[in-house]
Simulated scan of single mutants.
Amino acid sequence: MEGEIINRVANSKLKTIDLEDYYPEGTRSEIDISQWLMEGIVLVESRFRESLKNTDFTIYKDHYVAVNCSTDAIIPQWAWMLLQTELSGIAQKVVLGSPEDLETAVYRPIINALDLSVYENVPVIIKGCSNKPVPLAAYMMITDQLQGIARSIMYGEACSAVPVYKKKR
């Protein structure tokens, strides 16, 4: 047929990975330990322990929680450990760091568990522009996992993909 439009992308072996598809649903929360410090900078053990004891941590039930300190206070390691004991068995996951660090920690086991054999020797596009907070580190992790498996790795959309990796022949 003359003038027929052929969708070469649909007919190609090109496969797309959208990391947003692997985003685990659940509430994300952040706990700033400075709320329990005297004047936001000094940790007094007895006061800290009492504050933790009087805090209802059940509000974090099944949450993904990032714990950090927004001030320049020096927090002893045991303080973070005490906070972890309060959240254990309540929160889905607890990470020391920023919300981005939390998302990275959530994505790591998901990406490590992916069966990437379907991408063997085929060109792969890792879709960009997600609506959910897919961390930059997840893109690096999936690229690392796909190298040596996929024929090529691109980023973006089929109409405007940026080449990232090409397997040596």
Rank of each mutant, 00 (worst) to 15 (best):
M1N: 09
E4H: 13
I5T: 14
I5G: 06
I6Y: 10
I6A: 08
N7S: 12
N7G: 03
R8F: 09
S12R: 07
L14A: 04
L14Y: 03
L14E: 04
K15C: 07
D18W: 09
E20T: 02
D21C: 07
Y22K: 03
Y22F: 15
P24M: 06
G26T: 08
T27D: 10
S29C: 05
E30C: 09
I31F: 14
I31H: 00
Q35D: 12
E39I: 06
G40T: 07
I41M: 14
V42H: 10
L43C: 10
V44F: 10
S46E: 13
S46Y: 08
R49H: 04
S51R: 14
L52A: 03
K53S: 09
T55P: 13
T55W: 02
T55I: 04
D56S: 13
D56N: 15
F57V: 06
T58F: 09
T58A: 11
T58G: 07
T58S: 15
K61G: 04
H63D: 10
H63R: 03
Y64M: 12
V65E: 00
A66F: 00
V67T: 09
N68D: 10
S70F: 07
T71I: 11
D72Q: 12
D72P: 00
A73D: 06
I74W: 07
I75Y: 00
A79Q: 06
A79Y: 00
W80F: 14
M81L: 14
M81S: 14
M81A: 15
L82A: 08
L82K: 05
L82S: 04
Q84E: 04
E86P: 07
L87W: 02
G89V: 04
K93G: 07
V94W: 02
V95F: 05
V95T: 14
L96V: 13
G97Y: 12
G97T: 10
S98V: 10
S98I: 09
S98W: 10
P99H: 05
P99V: 02
E100I: 09
D101Q: 12
D101S: 13
L102N: 06
E103I: 00
V106P: 00
V106L: 11
P109A: 05
I111S: 02
I111L: 10
A113G: 15
L114F: 09
D115I: 08
S117R: 07
V118T: 12
V122F: 05
V122P: 00
V122I: 15
P123Q: 15
V124H: 02
I125G: 01
I126R: 01
K127F: 06
C129A: 14
S130E: 03
N131A: 11
P133W: 11
V134Q: 01
V134E: 00
V134M: 03
P135E: 02
L136F: 13
A137F: 07
A138T: 06
A138M: 05
M141K: 03
I142P: 00
T143M: 08
T143I: 07
T143N: 13
D144N: 12
D144W: 11
Q145Y: 01
L146M: 08
L146D: 02
L146I: 10
Q147K: 15
Q147M: 15
I149C: 03
I149S: 03
A150P: 01
R151L: 14
R151A: 15
R151E: 14
R151M: 10
M154W: 02
G156K: 04
G156S: 12
V162G: 05
V162S: 13
P163G: 06
V164G: 01
Y165D: 06
K166N: 11
K166I: 14
K167G: 03
K167V: 06
K168L: 11
K168A: 11
